[in-house]
Design a protein around this nucleic acid. Sequence first.
RNA 1: UGGGAUAUGGUGUAAUGGUAACACUACAGAUUCUGGUCCUGUCAUUCCAGGUUCGAAUCCUGGUAUCCCAACCA
Length: 598
Amino acid sequence: MAENNSNEVVEKKSLNFIEAKVENDLKEGKNGGRLQTRFPPEPNGYLHIGHAKAIAMDFGVAEKFGGVCNLRMDDTNPQKEDTEYVEAIKRDIEWLGFKWGKLVYASDYFQNLWDFAVWCIKNNKAYVDEQTSEEIAAQKGTPTQAGTNSPYRDRPVEESLALFNEMNSGNMEPGKAILRAKIDMTSPNMHFRDPIMYRVLNMPHWRTGNTWNAYPMYDFTHGQSDYLEGVTHSICTLEFVPHHELYDLFVTWIKEWAKETGKVVEGHPHGEDIEDNRPRQFEFNKLNLNYTLMSKRNLLILTKEGVVNGWDDPRMPTICGIRRRGYSPESILKFIDSIGYTTFDALNDVKLMEAAARADLNERSTRVSAVLDPVKLIITNYPEGQVEELEVVNNPELKDAEGNVIMEGNTHTIEFSRELWIERADFKAEADKKFFRMTPGKETRLKGAYIVDCTGFKADENGNVEEIYCTYDPTSKAGTEGANRKVKGTIHWLSTAHCVPAEVRNYECLWTCENPRDAIKQYEKENGVRGIDAMRPFLNPNSLNINKNAFVEKYAAALPELSYLQFTRTGYFNVDPDSTPEHPVFNSTVGLKEAKGK
RNA sequence: UGGGAUAUGGUGUAAUGGUAACACUACAGAUUCUGGUCCUGUCAUUCCAGGUUCGAAUCCUGGUAUCCCAACCA
């Protein structure tokens, strides 16, 4: 029932502007009515939550409108890329629940790109420039000032051709020459000022080996790859808006090239007969989160400097980090859905992400008992040596049509005995009216067990409570008639003889400022330092807090890694990959919402 | 007068000339064997100034603010 309702709500939700555009293009029969997208990560780092937003768009829109989405590794810069990242990227996308049509690589197109570049030279659309990068930068002008032409701009085609071959020979020093598109050095769009198409790298590529020494640049690769692959909608983030016109220009050129050379283009069953048979670029706002640093470059620094324990550190905004932290794929997708896609440069509140996690984990997580700051409670009238096995519910949100909790297969047992651990914060020697947990002279319910009456406590000379005493009402066992009595406070507990010591890792934001990216940038500018030195002033020294004094019930200690848990009355946790049944380790995902009273 | 983009509650999104809606947060309350969940209520005249119109968040004019672009990165 509830599911049907929520599905209806989802369907009623209006399309975002890109989905609306796609729907319209399909209706108009653009690209012969085909829909194909791609997700194009550069394999130079791990995917982060910002990529999750792009993934949800690229794969999601294809899924929604019956198209296909390829996974394309944008591997045009062998200096920075590694196969380690390829595997991690694939794993993360699959974990999020998406399936690609084909796995392709920009490097698959290197030969086509080379042939196309040669065609550009022959058609007077490109030339080899032999100036230094400084000279080229100077000629480029500034955003407010036109650039000037390179002295090599009008060199003979044959000369460029020969030099271009030389660039790829392995005998030319990197930086000695580049291939540039001949467009317009006075264009107000900086990307039109004779953009670089190819540069010499002289290094092997992890996929193509020693075949290439000159490699194509992003702008000369992306739209062309889209075209060669048959992509119809090339969806990216807003910072590529200035590239849009160049994207279109190169696509126009490569269409001419394909037509002239009779190149059969995969995924274009209609060939060049259809004028609009071409990829188009669409841009949406990328994800910015407050108290979070997103850029791969900076995340790499954090891992290299040991600020965090690797890419999957639960404090990292990487998908693997968030996974280890205890987020479900559904909670990430729910969050992405809640922030939407627009063209507004937003700074999203992490609270939205936490709210999505709570909403999903509330439905999904197994409730277990864990005491994080233990103090001993002795039930003085409970027989010494007696142990009861009590049945407790795994997930109270699992309900049948009538709204009753489903018990079948939804319970586990927990031992109850005379000596228990309870949370130190659940007892107060002197309670005010707002406090309704355990205090002398008051009844408290031990969740899933009995109602007890606190009779006293023992404290050391400093007033630190060492033991608490109570009596229990044997007729008040959970599930029996005698339990149906109003008791204001309910607390959780653990039998001292039947629980397992556990390590619980608690996390806070890595950053102390709301917008670390801007803060770091400004600090770099003002103090002339870079990298980790500019980050340190904004790092939260308390972002990781390890608690080794906690206890959990046996059932929780035996759960497999990444299990979604709720420590009753505390928060959501998950089983860390470091965990073993003998030494269970848990990560705090996000706390429960807390009422004001505390 | 470089080019391009954007502006709706604390945050994010919706409203496509016709009663500013939704989610989250915050606050208040009810229910409760989790101070959770579920439920109820409270919180904006849409960046500013003019104009067009019976009627403007939406159209026009002029401002203001913010973001992107000057890597042989993607």
